[in-house]
Write a protein that binds this DNA or RNA. Structure first.
Lengths: 192, 192
DNA sequence: GTCTATAGAAAGATAGAC
DNA sequence: GTCTATCTTTCTATAGAC
């Protein structure tokens, strides 16, 4: 309780400001000048803490990516069953809700995120594919895989809820999880 | 069959090139130099056909936006019923699938799209909100509205399917529509 | 750790000849 | 309608003093 803008952790302040600006107006449209301005330092000082704009982005999305991969990797060890399906999907929902503030940056600036991931990208894509396939259940048809994609997309709706809405996170989680499971269970009717 | 790069419609060629580049690497990361290069003209010539980069974006998303709004506006005239719900949701799916190539640009560069919409934005947001509320059914709870958002998100999965996949569009449509309806029908179980 | 100053590149856009 | 040439602005990033 000594300073207004926190003591020596300018680094954290930069992180916060960047996250806020990236979320609000996108990665490309946000300049380091703006970030520095919001923190109250100069661009040059910013470079003391982060060696590039891309590294700043990496720092922001890092924990999210790690959490997502960790959950998805669970599909490599868990045998498929309705119960494990529910469990993993629930874990996925938890991660998304936990990182709700980082979400917009991730979904919106995919291009920049992909570039920032660099060598970790291949791994993540492969893990994601395995997860989606696992989610589709045993011997999945094309439609099953489509449903798996849709179920994942469903959980993404958590990002479209503004955090200051008076909807408790537990209700968001439950509602969307049930919705995603309903998607997986849905089957096209006889004909149409 | 007189020319390689089509006769006098440079404008259409610019449109195509821009759509391709925007989809591939994003709006902000694509420069007018790149677009001009791909078309085989200079930047200056490009400005003869489109007065700004933003107008080029407007031209690209224009028909999509109009179609989406048109479908959503249907909720203002149709009385809610399970049948009309299915009908409107189906129309929404059709629009998304129809504009699949434009989709990535729209979802990815939201910031730029919002800026380009400018005065049409307010209208679109309002229409979208009414549509979502209508979709949630009569006397919707918060959870109902969440499900409506998730159902819409569901249909967005159509954009994540690469067009050269050998999945027929009709199957995509049916599968995702049933999935979205399943979301709307899903209800959280007793306790958890 | 923070600053001033600036390098170097690339962007969007315009003027005016042909 | 297309070009060359150029303006103006802004960006990321670095050098070096304090």
């Amino acid at each position: 309780m000594q300073h207004e803008t926190t003591p020596r952790d300018t680094k954290a302040a930069i992180h916060r400001a960047a996250l806020e600006l990236f979320s609000g107006q996108g990665y490309e449209k946000t300049s380091l000048r703006e970030i520095a301005e919001q923190v109250g330092i100069t661009k040059a000082s910013l470079y003391y803490h982060y060696s590039s704009k891309q590294e700043l982005l990496r720092a922001i999305i890092g924990t999210f990516i790690e959490d997502v991969r960790s959950v998805m990797a669970g599909s490599d060890e868990l045998e498929w069953s309705p119960e494990s399906q529910r469990e993993l999907l629930g874990g996925y929902a938890d991660v998304i809700i936990k990182h709700r503030t980082t979400g917009p940056t991730l979904t919106r600036d995919i291009g920049a995120v992909i570039a920032a991931l660099d060598e970790d990208l291949g791994d993540l894509i492969a893990t994601s594919r395995r997860f989606q396939l696992w989610l589709a259940g045993p011997n999945p048809t094309l439609a099953d895989r489509l449903r798996a994609a849709a179920a994942i997309e469903c959980l993404g709706a958590a990002l479209s809820i503004t955090p200051d809405d008076d909807v408790p996170e537990s209700e968001i989680r439950n509602t969307l999880l049930e919705a995603a499971l309903a998607v997986l269970a849905s089957r096209t009717p006889p004909t149409n």
